[in-house]
Design a protein around this nucleic acid. Sequence first.
DNA 1: TTGCTGACCGACG
DNA 2: CCGTCGGCCAGCA
Length: 114
Amino acid sequence: MGEKKRSFFEKVYEVAAMIPYGRVTSYGAIAAYLGSKGSARMVGWAMNASFSAKEDIPAHRVVNRNGMLTGKNHFGDPSLMQQLLENEGIEVKNNKITDFKKYFWDPVKELQDY
DNA sequence: TTGCTGACCGACG
DNA sequence: CCGTCGGCCAGCA
């Protein structure tokens, strides 16, 4: 696919929008896919800004590398993130996804183009 | 422009 | 196992 000049945020949004229903990925995985492995924090920052983005970004499907819902406090209602995940069939216990590996979707492996 | 801050991550002791 | 640190880089005062 053609790689146009897009901002880091826009790229993050594109990847996030491709996360399949019922699957999750991590900030670091998205950053790695975008070619800047150390920019995981920026991915989180992009998610924070995604609420004001035009398109709908499934920010609840992005967690940290341990499968923990570290960003839940940014959803207005702290329980919303967990609710959305459980609604997709993902079990969450103590802010952590059960069988994280089972649901993990790695853009680096799933998306060949970059 | 400078200097923080941050929904992260891996390395180190 | 735990705390701390450097790197990453966009936004904001």
